[in-house]
Design a protein around this nucleic acid. Structure first.
Lengths: 111, 111
DNA sequence: CAGGTATATAACGCTAGGAGTATATATATG
DNA sequence: CATATATATACTCCTAGCGTTATATACCTG
């Protein structure tokens, strides 16, 4: 699998990533929660692992997978030039709100 | 083609979208700039058009394609829950800076 | 060590979809 | 109208990659 885009294009893989976004899981937990076959889960995890989307740590006979969202930065970065197309109308308002409210919004986000 | 992710997974289509992000183009312009065959360009444009990524307007015998980035919002939205993973360090810093800044503002009210 | 459980890998059949070639359609121009 | 140009579509071939089944590997427990 070449690009991060190709990897994320796979629905099952997006599901796995979304699941891991909440907390780490073992293979069988993913298997159960997403109702996928075990080989399928393992194969997708391998792809995700080799591309740096997830990381495994050994826990007895289980492997606990956790997310490493670094590669998603690339998607985010690619998206950046397009954001203007859906934000340009609110930009003026945003700028205003930012000036008025920037500090307090930042504080509340870090809670 | 099912999902916006699948559509964007195709390198040629990402190239077309990036190209159109700068300005609208005709099919043959895309063909030249991306060095793709004409049928290939047309086919990708069809996929993009049917998924709402681009919009064509007639200009003589040409079709001028422009971007309609609405569908990309979906990618952006899917990405949202993952952003914490690469911003949380920045957030901690911001929280710190905010605390420092708050104090200094208390001391010297600049408006 | 035997048996069980968790995960990984291999082999295979199948299908989606990309590239290329050929052709159809529309418009412009002489 | 004849011809050239711009774009769309049909068709065929070909490969990447998914799911499944079977099996290998690793670890745990009695």
């Amino acid at each position: 699998m070449e690009s991060v885009f190709g990897i994320v294009a796979e629905p099952s893989r997006r599901a796995i990533l979304s699941l891991l976004a909440t907390s780490e899981r073992s293979v069988s937990e993913i298997e159960d929660e997403l109702r996928m076959s075990q080989p399928s889960v393992s194969k997708h995890l391998r792809v995700l692992r080799e591309a740096g989307f997830v990381e495994a740590r050994v826990d007895g006979q289980r492997r606990l997978y956790q997310i490493r969202a670094e590669p998603l930065k690339e998607v985010d970065a690619w998206l950046a030039p397009f954001r203007q197309f859906w934000t340009e109308r609110v930009d003026a308002l945003e700028a205003h709100l930012n000036r008025m409210d920037k500090r307090s919004r930042k504080r509340s986000r870090t809670g």
